[in-house]
Computed example of a mutant assay.
Amino acid sequence: MNQDARVATRVTAGVTFAAKLAFDDISHSFGAGNPTLREVTLSAEPGEVLCLLGPSGSGKTTLLRIAAGIEAQTAGRVLLNDREIAGPSVFLPPEQRSIGLVFQDFALFPHLSILDNVRFGLTALSREEAKREAMIALERVGLESYADSYPHVLSGGEQQRVALARALAPRPAVLLMDEPFSGLDSRLKDSVRAETLGILRHSRATAIVVTHDAEEAMRMGDRIALLRNGRLQQAGRAEELYLRPADLFVAGFFSELNVFDTRASGGAADTPVGKVDAAGFADGTPVNVAIRTSGFDVSEVSGEVQARILSRRYLGVVELLDLAVSGAETPVRARVRCGALSSSARDIWLSLRKSDVLVFERADKNA
């Protein structure tokens, strides 16, 4: 039976009411002058998968730990369905929050069976009730036949699903997942991500997933919240962050870019690879023109700007080119469809695709 069929036939017992989890002006610091979160306001809506995205040290995991009750914020409030669960006057312990947590390393007990791992946290239930709920959770992830086995016999992907079943067994209103796929090899990630997303939809839990991988966030998240140095840079749907990034950092997190420092003049900006639209910027405004590596059409016959191929790397569907362009201080990088250029091509022409050009006011205006 395939995964879709398993999801369709699994039991429907699960989360009764998905909850809204909100962070209200959250700040956190491990010591004076060392803030890890800075006035973060963000919410995960009922039944939504929200991905917390950002580089290492951006505050993603700290925000997750604050939601779970493992860490206390320095300032601000955490609310579950508009009820304060952590703030200046209240701090509910983790076991009272109806929030489940899936750790990065799965944290399964090697000496316990799969069934006993899943029912480990169901201490408020009788032994028989806990066994029933654990089996329901295992059925939900398609591993009921492994109930009497031990973690060492399972693959990495199966262990991840056991950890997910254990987190879902108490039927939490919100599920938190901290880089849940980082320990899986690249070939396995796609299938386990798809299975996990199906399970989350089926359980109806609100989920917050931490990742540093932009593509993973785009694959999984209904919305994405991008953090940098403890601040929320931008939040929205994947297409909003990709097509309308708030700044150069956001744009660079979702695409490999060529960035040119220049100035606006007459509603345009000149770059070594051509003139681009800069409407809305006053004459003389310092700007960064960011062009995605996918934003070039190439030809051996004609185009807008001449370039010389310095190197080319075959990547299967595309080739990655390093190009010398007059006026560019560093090589221009381009991803082009394989077969777009002959194997002997050296001097070529470039043309820009407007949809892959982004213009931002330069932060270091004096540079």
Rank of each mutant, 00 (worst) to 15 (best):
Q3M: 12
D4V: 10
A8E: 13
R10T: 15
V15G: 00
F17W: 07
K20V: 09
K20C: 13
D24V: 06
G31C: 07
G31F: 08
G33L: 08
T36M: 09
L37K: 01
R38F: 00
L42Q: 10
L42D: 05
P46E: 05
E48I: 10
V49A: 03
S58F: 11
T61S: 15
L63W: 01
L64R: 05
L64C: 05
R65M: 13
A68G: 11
A72W: 00
A72P: 00
A72L: 09
G76A: 03
G76H: 06
N81W: 01
A86F: 00
P88A: 15
P88F: 11
S89L: 07
V90T: 15
P93R: 14
P94R: 10
P94N: 07
Q96S: 13
F106Q: 12
A107I: 07
P110H: 09
L112C: 02
I114W: 06
D116N: 14
R119G: 01
T123W: 12
E128W: 02
E128Y: 00
E133C: 03
E133Q: 15
L138A: 04
L138K: 07
L138P: 08
E139D: 14
V141C: 02
A147F: 03
P151E: 08
H152F: 15
H152C: 10
G156Y: 04
G157V: 09
G157T: 10
E158R: 12
Q160N: 08
Q160K: 07
A165S: 07
A169D: 03
P172I: 07
A173E: 14
M177Q: 11
P180H: 07
G183V: 04
G183F: 04
G183W: 05
L184F: 10
R187F: 09
R187I: 12
K189N: 05
D190I: 15
T196Q: 02
L197Y: 13
H202S: 14
A207Q: 02
I208F: 03
V209Y: 04
T211Q: 05
A214M: 04
A214W: 03
A214Y: 06
R219A: 15
L226Q: 11
L227G: 08
R228S: 11
R237G: 11
E240Q: 14
L241Q: 09
L243R: 15
R244D: 12
P245A: 06
V250M: 00
G252C: 04
N258I: 08
F260Y: 08
A264W: 00
S265Q: 14
T271F: 09
T271V: 13
V273Q: 02
V276K: 02
A279T: 15
A279V: 13
A282D: 14
T285L: 08
P286N: 10
P286M: 10
V289D: 06
I291K: 06
T293W: 09
T293K: 11
I309P: 01
L310N: 06
R313M: 06
R313D: 03
E319K: 02
A324G: 03
S326I: 08
G327D: 12
P331G: 08
V332G: 00
R333Q: 15
A334V: 12
V336W: 11
G339C: 02
G339E: 02
G339K: 02
S342Y: 00
S344G: 04
L350F: 01
S351E: 13
L352V: 05
R353V: 05
S355H: 12
D356L: 02
V357R: 08
V357G: 10
V357D: 08
V359G: 06
F360D: 12
A363I: 14
A363E: 13
N366M: 05
